[in-house]
Design a protein around this nucleic acid. Structure first.
Lengths: 254, 254
DNA sequence: TAGTGGTCTAGACCACTTA
DNA sequence: AAGTGGTCTAGACCACTAG
């Protein structure tokens, strides 16, 4: 059954495929993870030393090192200099939630974005605070409704600094695809963004738009984007009823 | 090939400190990030080629390679083989939320955990489904109240498979520190966990315990832990009123 | 074809832990 | 003192992209 594509002496000591397109460091990391998964190495156990892995898989230290680094990056193990590398036990505190999954939530079919309205409005106190400007300053207010399979899924509300010199206006207004929405402006003037997830009650207006009954708990996904002078360019939030969205993740070996 | 410690030749071409305790690859990654931060490299721009960086900083390819990998891992840049490495633009979809911050939320002073009660209860349909067992099976029910600065912050509810053979019972019951709570059982029999964050309305009971008025939106942080046979060992959830907790993160260069 | 990123080697030296 | 992880070198070969 086995087809050794190498003629050198390996076979038993090199249980990974050097002819594969998967890099050796990745294969070694996956082998170790598989051993953890099947209980060969248990949480708290010490993994074989790097020198031992070098002998076992007949690769150079740098390669085995990179495999170990993968496990450490993935919070599968912890390396302690002078002591060893140890398997982590699953911790709630080690959980990470990736909003990439939100895009997956939408990816697929039957997604549409309805532009509810676009206005020039004067900033009230809240908006002025979030955009670090003064009350009464002109801002562009955009409201959108994201539908999945014809059902309202997300309500999006955004305020943009009104600056006739910038092309932001048209750029933002024309954003009708989810990808663009999630990526923000297509321009290269945005340096960074701050994202906050809150849980709060839907307002009556939002509930009406999203076609749900109050009281209803919802996720509020706030986003503020800053230019290269660290000045806010836009502030807004996505709203999604709590019964239509979860954030999931795993800890430990999956 | 003399490889003596050359005391010169760094100076201008090596704008990083070879004597520092910070590794060269890390320093180079930070220098590049600083350049992105200050707008020298903008989103969409191509970073200098690896060979160019090797010349510039007088380090080996592997070192520069690791610096680039750091930026790619941090979603600061994207490497395209045969083309180049390009600066990413900030995307909402690139946001990651780390529950580690939740521990920080609690870390510090004035944290207490009050054990509300521990009972042996028979699983109802919901519990049986989550623990993959049958209705009526014995489970251990634990309820805790986590306080910060004497104010109720989290309510925690957990169900454990009742197995007299396992030491889990005492282990879980005695968990009174937050660290233990977040790490789960101290044993090494847990292979993995599944974490879900939901937004929902507080029940009247929870609202009473947490001393808030209804209706109130709250985060529900569900956790299920599995043993090495992929059988659920415990299921439970943390509840926190929405006005007492946010999840924050950043995209782009911070 | 020239340039780019991706992998890998076979060592070296260092810092640290443990006994 | 022995063993461990952490960094780094100075090349090599490969796969891919673009002019």
């Amino acid at each position: 059954m086995t087809k050794s594509r190498k003629k050198t002496s390996d076979s038993i000591l090199s249980p990974f495929d050097k002819g594969s397109y998967e890099p050796a460091y990745s294969q070694i990391a996956n082998i170790l993870k598989q051993h953890i998964r099947t209980g060969v190495f248990r949480p708290g156990d010490q993994l074989p030393a790097e020198s031992e892995l070098c002998r076992q898989y007949q690769v150079s230290p740098m390669t085995v090192r990179r495999a170990i680094n993968m496990l450490v990056d993935q919070q599968v193990a912890t390396a302690i200099r002078g002591s060893g590398t140890y398997v982590n036990k699953p911790e709630i505190g080690a959980a990470n939630f990736h909003l990439q999954e939100l895009q997956d939530f939408f990816s697929g079919s039957d997604i549409s974005i309805k532009l509810l309205n676009v206005n020039i409005v004067k900033a009230n106190e809240k908006i002025a605070a979030m955009l670090n400007t003064t009350v009464g300053e002109k801002t562009i207010h955009i409201r959108r409704l994201l539908k999945k399979e014809l059902q309202p899924a997300f309500y999006h509300c955004e305020y943009l600094i009104y600056d006739p010199k910038l092309p932001t206006v048209e750029t933002e207004m024309e954003m009708t695809s989810l990808r663009e929405l999630f990526e923000g402006s297509g321009s290269n003037m945005i340096k960074r963004g701050a994202i906050v997830i809150k849980a709060a009650l839907l307002t009556d207006e939002e509930a009406a738009i999203l076609k749900v009954k109050t009281p209803m708990a919802a996720f509020y996904l706030e986003h503020t984007f800053y230019d290269f002078n660290d000045a806010p360019i836009s502030w807004g939030y996505f709203v999604c009823p709590g019964d239509r969205l979860n954030f999931k993740t795993d800890v430990g070996i999956v």
